[in-house]
Each structure stands twice: as C-alpha cells, then as structure tokens.
C-alpha cells in the first residue's frame, strides 16, 4: 500500500465550503434586493411570538416571507401563514442547524423575487446555528429574561455573530434576578458592535425600536 497514496495538503476550514455558498447567496440577494434576516434563539424564548408581532406591524409596508426551520412539524408555518404572509416550513431532518444550501432551497420555495424581507426562523439552539453562515444579510438573536443575563458568557459564539440582540420578556423582569446592565456588559465583552434592544413581544414594549432597526436595514440593503 505504501507509495500508492500521496499526501495532499488541504489546509481548509470545514466551514469554508458553506461560507463560499453563503457568500454567493448574499450576492444574489443583493441583486434581487431581498433582505434575509437569520433569527436565532434557544427554544421557548418567544421567537414565533416576536416574529408574529413584527409581521403584523410591518406587513403593510414590506412584502414579507418567512422560512420556519424545525426538526419536525408544521406548527410555526401554520401560525405565520395565518397572518397572510408567505411561509414555508423547512424540515431539517434531525439536523440541529441550517446551512446556506438549505436556506437557498427554502428561499426558492418563497419565490424570493417577490419578497423584500425574508426571515429565516432558525432551529431553536444557541450552539450550532452560530457556526453555519446561512447567507443572511443580518443575524438577530432573541435572549429571554428567564434564560439569565449570563448567556452571552456561556454561548460566546452566538453572541459574537449577532448584529442585534433582542432581550425579550421584559414584563417578567421583576420576578427574575436578571441584571440588564450586566447583560449588556456581557454581550459587549463578546461583541462590542451588537445592538441590544430590550423588548416584550407580548405587550409590545420596545418593539418600535426593533421595527425601526429592521426597516432601516432593509432600506439600506435595497439601495
């Protein structure tokens, strides 16, 4: 066997192949003027509630499409379609994250030429979705108050890839030992550029700041 095989130096990150596909997808989205937002969080942080409220507020101004990524079930896509916007359910088949290729497939299901804002609701998980670039223009994550202000320290990569962090469920702040200043500090340690917006998707508190950020980013992308 010796001598039959030669050694080839590859020296390439395993993520390089996905990163390349993500870059290509972003270029196409720029041409088509489609803003893709990758929304990440742990399960139960209020992603679907926050998204539902956002859609209700913005659907008259923007053409919105949603891709729901879940290991199984159609629950979230049904909730979103009920609002009168396009929604597709992506089944990851047990996979814990979405990559650029799966995202591209989802976008084709949305007939992406026709939407201005495409939202990818990623799998509820703070680890793997952070490692795979989906091709999104911006990454957002939701951290809810009951999860604790130390999450940025426990999941540093997630916080370092996010452009905006929404701190949800501010209505329950009196019942938890959640220190908002400490949380901002912990986020800044991992990502000084991240914008932090405290919100309550249930009551609507703080949501205007989030809508303003989102509308501004969509506008900038289409310029």
């Amino acid at each position: 066997m010796e001598g039959k095989y030669k050694v080839l130096e590859v020296k390439q990150s395993v993520f390089a192949d996905n990163d390349r596909q993500a870059e290509e997808l972003r270029k196409e989205l720029k041409q088509k003027k489609v803003f893709l937002l990758n929304l990440m969080s742990s399960p139960g942080s209020g992603k679907t509630t926050a998204l539902t409220r956002t859609i209700e507020a913005l659907k008259d101004e923007l053409r919105i499409g949603v891709m729901e990524a879940d290991i199984d079930s159609e629950v979230d896509a049904e909730t979103i379609s009920g609002l009168g916007v396009k929604a597709v359910q992506l089944h990851t088949g047990g996979m814990c994250h979405l990559d650029a290729d799966m995202t591209r497939q989802g976008l084709s299901g949305l007939e992406d030429g026709d939407v201005e804002l495409a939202v990818l609701e990623n799998v509820g998980n703070l680890v793997c979705p952070a490692e795979f670039d989906t091709g999104a223009v911006k990454n957002a994550m939701i951290l809810s108050v009951p999860e604790g202000d130390d999450k940025p320290l426990k999941y540093p990569l997630m916080f370092s890839v996010c452009d905006v962090v929404l701190i949800n469920k501010t209505d329950v702040l009196p019942y938890f030992d959640f220190d908002m200043d400490k949380c901002r500090e912990n986020i800044a340690l991992r990502n000084p550029d991240a914008k932090v917006i405290p919100i309550c998707a249930r009551t609507g508190e703080g949501m205007e700041d989030w809508y303003a950020w989102l509308k501004e980013e969509v506008k900038k992308w289409a310029e």
Binding site: K4, Y5, K6, V7, L8, V10, K11, S13
Partner: peptide
C-alpha cells in the same frame, strides 16, 4: 480579568488527505 479572548482552539480544519 475577564477581558480575555480565545486565540486558538475553535478550529475545525481539514489538514491533509492521502489519495491517489
């Protein structure tokens, strides 16, 4: 201090292959 950052240790790289 907590002002620290990782300089190596999160690599997932393909170093080399043996092939013909």
């Amino acid at each position: 201090s907590g002002q620290t950052y990782l300089i190596q240790g999160n690599e997932v790289n393909i170093k080399e292959i043996e092939a013909c």
